[in-house]
């Protein structure tokens, strides 16, 4: 070992104040998540594709000169052209407008169902987890019993009882779907309420309202939002499936599911009638799934770098 002597070292000075300084710029949780999401190329592309589909669904039917409900029987089953970008269907209706109208319905159903499930699930699961004990036991057994019936069976059953229509689709899917969110939120709350920062708040004299609104809910939001992004494609898919088996939105309205069903009948003669709606469904599902995945990576604190 080399010899060390006093004069080999030189005091360069230190300030104890600087030792505590943090160089990294201060970012909130959401800013940090956004930064990570942007650096995830797949998720970002998915977000852009999803945004384009959404924008088209909102504006294409408004800006197009064709109507989604009225067709010209003389122009039925036209192949895609400059006039009809996606062609026309068997009643001569413009498929371009119908496809985006269908996307609009699918997205609407997906979002509304996800938001309803989110609201009911957070309230129900939140109460169950926060109160705990026997209340939690009873509330969760109710969920277990209700959701021991498979999801699709539930929806089909409710749909046949309530009749067809936009409202009933949304209602049936909400009744059948809120349990998953409730279970998730309850689990999160149970875990977080035992953490030391919640105990610290209780020691400081915080009441239940404060603990729930400032400590429990903000800390469950990450996981819950990830789940909502996965619930949207699931709802869209279920709706498409229901429409496909004839339980969907009644004519003349259309969803991506009903359009695909109509398309299958023409598959051998006019394949483009199936191709367009199914491509949109696939892109929508894929982009939402990939985006949800990226969001999970961005929000999950365990992967924090």
């Amino acid at each position: 070992m080399a010899e060390t002597s006093e004069n080999k070292f030189e005091i360069i000075g230190k300030s104890s104040k600087d030792a505590q300084a943090i160089v990294r710029p201060s970012l909130t949780y959401w800013q940090d998540a956004w930064r990570r999401l942007k650096s995830n190329r797949f998720a970002f592309v998915a977000l852009i594709i999803f945004s384009i589909i959404t924008i088209m669904a909102i504006f294409a039917p408004i800006l197009s000169s064709h109507s989604f409900r009225e067709g010209d029987l003389l122009l039925m089953n036209q192949t895609p052209s400059a006039e009809f970008w996606f062609g026309t269907d068997e009643l001569g209706r413009d498929l371009f407008v119908r496809c985006w109208m269908g996307t609009r319905y699918s997205l609407f159903i997906g979002f509304v169902v996800a938001i309803l499930n989110f609201t009911i699930g957070v309230i129900y699961g939140g109460i169950s987890g926060y109160v705990g004990g026997n209340v939690d036991n009873i509330m969760m057994r109710i969920v277990d019993i209700l959701f021991s019936i498979p999801y699709l069976l539930w929806v089909i059953m409710l749909m046949t009882v309530m009749g067809r229509g936009l409202h009933t689709i949304i209602m049936a899917m909400t009744i059948a779907g809120w349990g998953q969110m409730a279970r998730l939120v309850r689990g999160q709350i149970l875990q977080i309420k035992e953490m030391e920062f919640v105990m610290a708040a209780r020691t400081l004299g915080a009441d239940a309202t404060r603990i729930i609104s400032k400590h429990l809910i903000p800390n469950t939001m990450g996981v819950v939002i990830i789940n909502v992004t996965f619930a949207i494609p699931q709802a869209i898919f279920t709706e498409a499936f229901l429409s496909f088996i004839g339980l969907g939105i009644p004519v003349p309205h259309a969803s991506l599911g009903t359009l695909s069903r109509d398309g299958t009948r023409m598959l051998l003669i006019h394949p483009y009638q199936l191709v367009f709606p199914s491509v949109i469904i696939s892109l929508l599902m894929l982009s939402l799934q990939i985006f949800g995945d990226g969001l999970r990576d961005a929000l999950d604190p365990r992967l924090r770098q």
């Binding site: 030391e196 020691t203 400032k214």
Partner: peptide, 23 residues
């Protein structure tokens, strides 16, 4: 109890779990 909270406080063991990450 709220008054008692002003008299008696607590410092916790795990510095990673005892601060709310969202605040």
């Amino acid at each position: 109890m709220v008054k008692y909270a002003r008299e008696a406080q607590m410092i916790f063991q795990d510095p990673y779990a005892s601060l709310n990450p969202r605040m």
